Amino acid sequence: MTIMTSREFNQHLGQAQKAAMISPVTITNRGEPVFVLMSYEKFEQLQQRPMSAAEALSPSDPTVGTIDLELKPRSRTRRQSVEL
């Protein structure tokens, strides 16, 4: 998701509109999110069925922002007890 300050939004409206066609754009004022700019198509989808905020603000392409996380297997050795 793209985040822009209100000043950046005012100075680069065209860039914000292009970004909003891909995923919602959060517009901040003094570091706090105050508005979200999104395509009308995405807005209509939100109006048709209820969904969570996380789902609404996630990119349309499910592969965007995914993280491949590989965890090492947990050790099977017993840890020493600690006396307090």
Rank of each mutant, 00 (worst) to 15 (best):
L13Y: 12
L13D: 03
L13P: 00
L13Q: 13
G14P: 03
G14L: 10
G14N: 09
G14M: 07
G14V: 08
G14D: 15
G14F: 05
Q15T: 08
Q15I: 07
Q15N: 10
A16L: 06
Q17R: 14
Q17S: 12
Q17M: 10
Q17D: 10
Q17K: 15
Q17T: 05
K18N: 12
K18C: 09
K18P: 01
A19P: 07
A19Q: 15
A19M: 13
A19T: 04
A20W: 04
A20T: 07
A20G: 11
A20D: 10
A20N: 11
A20F: 07
M21I: 13
M21T: 15
M21S: 14
M21E: 15
M21Q: 15
I22T: 15
I22L: 15
I22M: 12
I22W: 00
I22Q: 15
I22K: 13
S23H: 07
S23D: 05
S23P: 01
P24M: 05
P24T: 07
P24H: 02
P24D: 08
V25P: 09
V25S: 12
V25A: 13
V25L: 11
V25G: 12
V25Q: 12
T26L: 14
T26R: 14
T26E: 13
T26F: 09
T26M: 14
T26Y: 08
I27F: 06
I27N: 04
I27H: 01
I27Y: 02
I27T: 04
I27A: 06
I27W: 04
T28Y: 06
T28G: 02
T28W: 03
T28M: 10
T28K: 10
T28V: 04
T28C: 11
N29C: 11
N29K: 14
N29H: 14
N29M: 09
N29Y: 13
R30A: 11
R30E: 15
R30S: 15
R30L: 12
R30H: 12
R30W: 11
R30Q: 15
R30Y: 14
G31P: 07
G31A: 07
G31D: 09
E32C: 01
E32S: 08
E32Q: 10
E32R: 05
E32W: 00
E32D: 11
E32G: 00
P33E: 09
P33S: 06
V34I: 14
V34M: 09
V34T: 13
V34S: 06
V34A: 08
F35N: 12
F35M: 12
V36M: 05
V36W: 01
V36Q: 03
V36K: 01
V36C: 07
L37Y: 06
L37W: 05
L37S: 04
M38R: 08
M38Q: 08
M38A: 10
M38P: 07
M38F: 02
M38C: 13
M38T: 05
S39P: 00
S39D: 06
Y40C: 03
Y40H: 07
E41V: 09
E41K: 09
E41L: 05
K42V: 00
K42D: 11
K42P: 00
K42H: 12
K42I: 04
K42C: 05
K42G: 03
F43Q: 01
F43P: 00
F43V: 00
F43S: 00
F43G: 01
E44Y: 02
E44K: 05
